[in-house]
Design a protein around this nucleic acid. Sequence first.
DNA 1: GTTGTTGCAAAGAATTTGCAGTCTA
DNA 2: TAGACTGCAAATTCTTTGCAACAAC
Lengths: 132, 132
Amino acid sequence: MKTIERKKKRNTKQKAIVFQVVQDSHDHPTAETVYERAKRELPTISLGTVYRILKELVPEGKIREIIVNKQSRFDPKTEFHHHFICKKCGKIEDVKTPLCRYTCKKLEQKGYIIEEIEYKFYGLCDKCAAEN
Amino acid sequence: MKTIERKKKRNTKQKAIVFQVVQDSHDHPTAETVYERAKRELPTISLGTVYRILKELVPEGKIREIIVNKQSRFDPKTEFHHHFICKKCGKIEDVKTPLCRYTCKKLEQKGYIIEEIEYKFYGLCDKCAAEN
DNA sequence: GTTGTTGCAAAGAATTTGCAGTCTA
DNA sequence: TAGACTGCAAATTCTTTGCAACAAC
């Protein structure tokens, strides 16, 4: 057991704006995109700060991080859900899917502890599929 | 429709060795690890070449690529299966799980085409869970 | 006034790429 | 011998980090 040293966080304009930008974004933006949107509110904000704040909001459970093509994207929806990624237009869409209880149970019976589950479906969205 | 220009591939020592290394690896090695193992057979092989060959074997269906922590890893098992990733020791383990037909059907009814499905389970493996 | 935060720029890590020389077919 | 492939090193891309100035509390 190591002592948990907690330093008291401060509220800054930057944190409020980055959080708000993610809240208002339903397109799973990258850090760069969050940065661009945040700049509209606070032109002096820096990309490094955006990265730092995003990286802090995730473990606090305020936003979710999903990784697509080795790149982080951020999602205001923290409840359990999954994603569909269109290989053509790159659109990322939320997907509801039942949890795979059978598989989880089997792993747990082996002594495993499951903390996170991530499903990704890749393919073509309706529009791209129609375009063929 | 664009013409598919195919240039005839050649067989080289490097390709054979990289393929063989992945075939013999059951620990989901990174490109760097494949490189180290390949060097034991062919000390002059370069990392760039390993990357190029791995990137070519994947679409050919000869090996599979899985991405963990934004890093590519390679798997000789090409049949449909998923992965468990231990957050503590980093071990990656194969997981069999039934395909989520219900979710796929729902997406397909919306006009989506599903080409790939990827499930990842994160947590602690039996050993790390026991150590607490 | 402390000390957590920021902006900036430099550093990192993983991967890709241009090129000239090499080797396969 | 044509041109696919390789080794090398430089370039890219995304992300993290060190540091001095700044700003919450």
